[in-house]
Design a protein around this nucleic acid. Structure first.
Lengths: 343, 343
DNA sequence: AGCATGGCGGAAAGAGCTTTCCCGGTCTTG
DNA sequence: CAAGACCGGGAAAGCTCTTTCCGCCATGCT
């Protein structure tokens, strides 16, 4: 509580150095104004001796700005988001920015709340990662908060999510999924099923749509019974895969719209006694590094997660900040053992 | 820059509501002092209308305390740390605490720096996760910063790391590794190798020591050539495993001191054409959830990562904060397919 | 010698809150 | 009915800095 507890403030430093507050401040900030060498030395020496630590909150007030960037993710334990976060932090460091982290536990209705909190903190910017967009009530709240934040002079960037009045970093999910479908068809697969993730997640929807497009070009259509929705998590993938098996469809290759689900699906198939990849091929999306060692290694679409984060941070830090710029990243299809070429 | 940009402050609210600053503040904080119902309503109404957002920095100044808790981890992209972080955030939420995240990129010499930054932010507390302890020069810096932070009234908690003047949450690495060794011996294994991780990491050292103890009880000793140091990462595990293979030792079971390394080792063995688990058994430590689906499923020691985080946060939030309390968690051996019973 | 410059240091005005202290009016109570 | 206890409200101090505005003194010029 008594955060002041015996610690020296700038006033103490100034007094002990026998200079004014203004001078002390100037010395310690390397201000434009010149200060005599002798005084500089004296001030610095005293500051060091008193173990002076400038008050962030006070500086923020006086300067009218903080160095805080807020990061809002659905689930920090998910490797997709933690990798993206790593990219952001990497970029933030050299700029002296402080990252505050909020995890919505995949309850996107909390995003608005967190942005409001960030506004209270007077954060410079917010980076929003991959939220949903269809629940119109919550979306309205979210838009309102984003606008309020922007109106207050803050900058907002979004990753993997359209429709927000903010600079946006996008993955070309559609194109990536389309290319993946074409590749799989090229490998000889004809009968597909898709573990489609949550239907209110743009990312999931786009990947499904792109995949469909790719198949259609090859004259293949996806029966609606072959599209299994579910959670965007490992367990969601497991459940969807189990459901698929229960329907007993005739399928050669399963596309899970993200790697995490794909891993769950692989586990489910194995639990049911299937021998992968011979009995069934599986493909994912994202190319999550920590999942590269599962067996069989997943065919997937590589997404430059860290770069997504870095670009988003650049958006937040860049001066201009006109209306809403967009930066797109292509995914690259990576074929691995989980989808061997057919006969 | 101009973060003030047109936004209303408490003064504006007070004026428009026709009350004093003090009253407005009291209403908005639900202060102990009672305020007439009518005024309350008026103030709230105006605040809402002006979209008033109290300034965090200003509140921090006036109150002499922030709601910031700093979290310092080696690498947020590592599932060990991201899971722990999730536990912390989970617990932090209901307390209205704000988490700021710093990732040292496994360069522990930066920890001191980050703590200093947190002190400047006037953070209430710091949670330090799993750093090294042997480099005496950096350790001295770190201790100094921790003490300075504490002297300034902040609270420090450490996870998986002794020797710091702070409340500590520990995993019983030694006992866990010992139990694991005994279990493996019970399964019939006799010839072991250990991928030991970095020698300056207490966690790694304790696990190795515990494993050795367990073996010794069974009359087995570990040749120093059977202990391969390396990085605490997937690639470190891969490299160490490769090195082990190159030495061509006669080994039945490899213990990697954490799961992430174990996964790297599994990949290395497979790349060398070994058929797991028949040709070689592998065990890990931590029971990282996102790694549960690798093949073969890893025998490991389960560590309650989220709980570690939660307890650490409790330490930071709890009133008392005497000297340095310690909370220990046992690990639980989990046998899976990667170490089948022998013969 | 007289005056305009420039350099350097200080006083003071905020920045936006919380909280203590004070005061006038009510309500209670003997 | 007077007096003390309360209650609700406001004025103002204080938290720790940054930055503008002033003023002093020493130069440099003419």
């Amino acid at each position: 509580m008594a955060r002041a507890g015996g610690k020296a403030n700038l006033n103490d430093v100034a007094k002990q150095a026998g200079v004014s507050l203004a001078t002390a401040s100037r010395v310690l900030n390397g201000s434009a104004r010149t200060v005599g060498a002798e005084l500089q030395e004296r001030v610095r020496e005293v500051a060091a001796r008193l173990d002076y630590s400038p008050s962030g909150p006070a500086q923020a007030m006086a300067r009218g700005a903080t160095n805080v960037i807020g990061l809002v993710v659905p689930d920090i334990a998910d490797p997709y988001f933690s990798t993206t976060a790593a990219g952001i932090m990497h970029e933030a460091e050299p700029h002296g920015m402080i990252i505050t982290l909020s995890s919505t536990q995949r309850r996107s209705e909390r995003e608005a709340e967190y942005i409001a909190s960030l506004r209270r903190q007077r954060a410079r910017g917010v980076i929003l990662v991959g939220s949903r967009t269809t629940d119109s009530r919550h979306e309205a709240d979210l838009r309102a908060e984003v606008e309020a934040f922007t109106a207050a002079g803050g900058r907002v960037a979004a990753i993997s999510q359209h429709r927000l009045p903010a600079d946006t970093v996008l993955v070309e999910n559609r194109a990536g999924a389309r290319a993946l479908a074409e590749t799989l068809v090229g490998l000889g697969y004809r009968r597909f099923a898709v573990l489609a993730g949550p239907s209110d997640l743009v990312t999931a929807r786009d990947r499904l749509a792109g995949f469909r497009e790719g198949l259609r070009r090859a004259g293949i259509t996806l029966d609606s019974a072959d599209v299994i929705p579910g959670e965007f998590t490992r367990d969601g993938g497991y459940a969807a895969a189990t459901a698929l098996l229960d329907e007993d469809r005739d399928v050669e290759c399963v596309f899970a719209v993200n790697d995490v689900m794909a891993v769950g699906a692989v586990a489910a198939f194995r639990d049911r006694g299937l021998n992968l990849p011979d009995d069934l091929a599986v493909a994912g999306f994202d190319d999550i590094v920590s999942l590269r060692d599962i067996w069989p290694p997943l065919t997937t679409v590589r997404v430059p997660l860290e770069q997504l984060g870095r670009e988003a941070l650049k958006f937040v830090l860049d001066e201009p900040g006109d209306g809403s710029r967009v930066r797109r990243f292509r995914g690259e299809v990576v074929v691995r053992a989980s989808t061997p070429a057919l006969g």
